[in-house]
Design a protein around this nucleic acid. Structure first.
Lengths: 342, 342
DNA sequence: CTGTTAGCGCCTTCAT
DNA sequence: ATGAAGGCGCTAACAG
């Protein structure tokens, strides 16, 4: 029972040609109802399953897409992938996942191997803005393989992207802190070679400026996305004179580290110090001292990315490159860490 | 620049046969150093990339594996997938992910479409123990496609699996509560059609028995893995007379819900009530009142699953079915929710 | 060491 | 309405 049945097996059994079987299976209208039905039945009886590999080779369409993320075991990226999978499965696409671990070389390898595997498209959240990966991405485009950025994009002509408005995210988070009567707002910023972090910083700056609060560059600290990094950054901030009375962190994990460190020093949150994070990780709302955070709606981002890909696939005019940039709206979830009791 | 170059293009340019090109590219020792080098160089120059699809069709090996999980956006499953990906990528396998959303029909569809796609193996955490999916899984085995269970397995002859010792997990969690001087320990159990939950319950029972604590079936509540379910179950428990003074929850989320509900009723944790969860979700250690939990080491589980698959692939004797059942050791992380101050 | 041939499973002209 | 033939890109068997 382990042999796979092909259309030839069916053809032989029915004394017809493989072409007819193929046509019948594909509901070709030129096939008589009777043979069509006969073929269908025998196929079912013989437990025939289409070999997608052969079909792919023939058609040049694999029905596989590649999704490249820094890592999969973070709620943010996992939710995006969930969105992509849910949107693409009904369209018969399979989702291949690759992790870069923030390593540029791995990223390039991933792209190349996906290309070799003849994926029909690539969706990627890049690790950084290097020259190298740009070259590789151009190769993808040259091959007319749709490539779509999500979240961490690169500004490249002709390449579509789905992101959130990070500028606005930074802005509303900062504005909220200002409205909460915070006077000296610090910012944990991420890797400035990435647009998203640049934009969050700029949103922060703009909010300060719009409210006549002078920008103090000592209040901006480059902080990785981890508890430890958050603690260290708080340490630095508290040595300043005057120290800040609020933090807008571009990472929820750093925000949590900050809160833990502040608490351990006896600083009262939110009364004496407010904190807002970014990402709306599940734990932010689980904490007793729940953490305010900017929601990036990753599930929606994933679905939207998939939809942009599907649209791209419909466009069969290979010479026409459509660039579509979807920018989702960030939402601030205000929780205890920034809600002063008046 | 958008046309893909094939070995024929290289062959033509070099006035040699495609077979020679193929051999050179594959480092066949029978090829002269000079032509080999020449081919390599021209290939590079012409930007040749192997078409894995063609290779797959020819060899009957796609170098793709399918991973089926209930959902991807939970830390547990995401970490497993991470482990699988990291272990398989160096071996040139691609990982296709599918979600079932706990729906049996979707699960069967996923298996079938993966089979059509000619994956070299399937790794799956099943949604439940039905007759239907068993039939489908048997079809996989009939086709000699390696299938490996992880976490949520089914007892089937000849099928390998990687799980943790859930019985032991339930046992050590309960024993710890007993040692913490808890007298009336309740248990939130999961879907009893799944082995893992049955085993946790049995571990709980055994620990009670070994310590001469009578089993009270009113203390066992069927609870889904969610905050809300945890709250509801606490509500039920507190109506009992006497109410319990501890909970071993088979889910971290339900444990968190329980804690929130207990707190809202003014019950002091851990002094008056202890809680232990299962899964070691990241948030359990982030909380101010950190939650004790049984670690299932999903990353390791994923890696191990991948290794079992690789081993299976080495065995080319198709008639010989090897069943390998790896059982990982659960570890209890004791945190504040069950650490009474003496 | 290299060329020829054939076939993996499918589909799509072209012909009948 | 159906059959014959060819090819997607690659490689293994066979032959020299």
């Amino acid at each position: 029972m382990s042999e796979k049945t092909t259309i030839y097996d069916i053809a032989k059994k029915l004394n017809i040609s493989a072409a007819t079987v193929s046509r019948a299976l594909n509901n070709n209208p030129k096939i008589s109802k009777s043979t069509c039905k006969l073929v269908m039945e025998t196929a079912a009886k013989m437990n025939y399953k289409q070999n997608l590999l052969a079909q792919a080779l023939r058609s040049g369409k694999s029905n596989n897409v590649g999704v490249i993320v820094p890592r999969i075991d973070s709620n943010f990226f996992a939710s995006i992938i969930r969105g992509i999978e849910e949107e693409l499965t009904p369209h018969k696409y399979h989702v291949i996942i690759c992790q870069t671990h923030e390593d540029e070389k791995t990223e390039i390898e991933n792209i190349n191997t996906l290309l070799n595997a003849q994926v029909d498209g690539i969706m990627i959240s890049i690790t950084n803005e290097s020259e190298e990966n740009e070259k590789t991405i151009k190769r993808v485009l040259d091959k007319n393989v749709p490539l779509i950025f999500f979240d961490r994009k690169k500004n490249m002509q002709g390449v579509s992207s789905v992101t959130i408005d990070d500028f606005k995210g930074g802005y509303i988070a900062t504005k909220h802190l200002i409205d909460s009567n915070c006077k000296r707002i610090a910012h944990f910023c991420g890797d400035q070679s990435l647009e998203i972090y640049k934009n969050r910083l700029n949103g922060y700056k703009q909010a300060l400026q719009d409210n006549n609060i002078p920008f103090n560059e000592n209040y901006v600290i480059r902080t990785k996305s981890s508890l430890e990094a958050g603690k260290l950054s708080v340490d630095k901030l508290l040595k300043l004179n005057p120290p800040p009375d609020a933090i807008f962190s571009s990472s929820d994990f750093a925000a949590l580290g900050a809160i833990q460190e502040l608490k351990s020093r006896g600083i009262k949150i939110p009364d004496d110090f407010c904190v807002v994070g970014f990402g709306d990780e599940p734990f932010t709302k689980f904490m007793e001292l729940s953490i305010s955070s900017v929601d990036q709606s990753p599930l929606e981002m994933g679905k939207m990315t998939a939809r942009v890909f599907l649209e791209q696939m419909k466009n069969d005019n290979k010479d026409l490159k459509i660039e579509k940039n979807v920018i989702l709206n960030p939402e601030l979830h205000i929780r205890k860490s920034s809600t002063k009791i008046l």
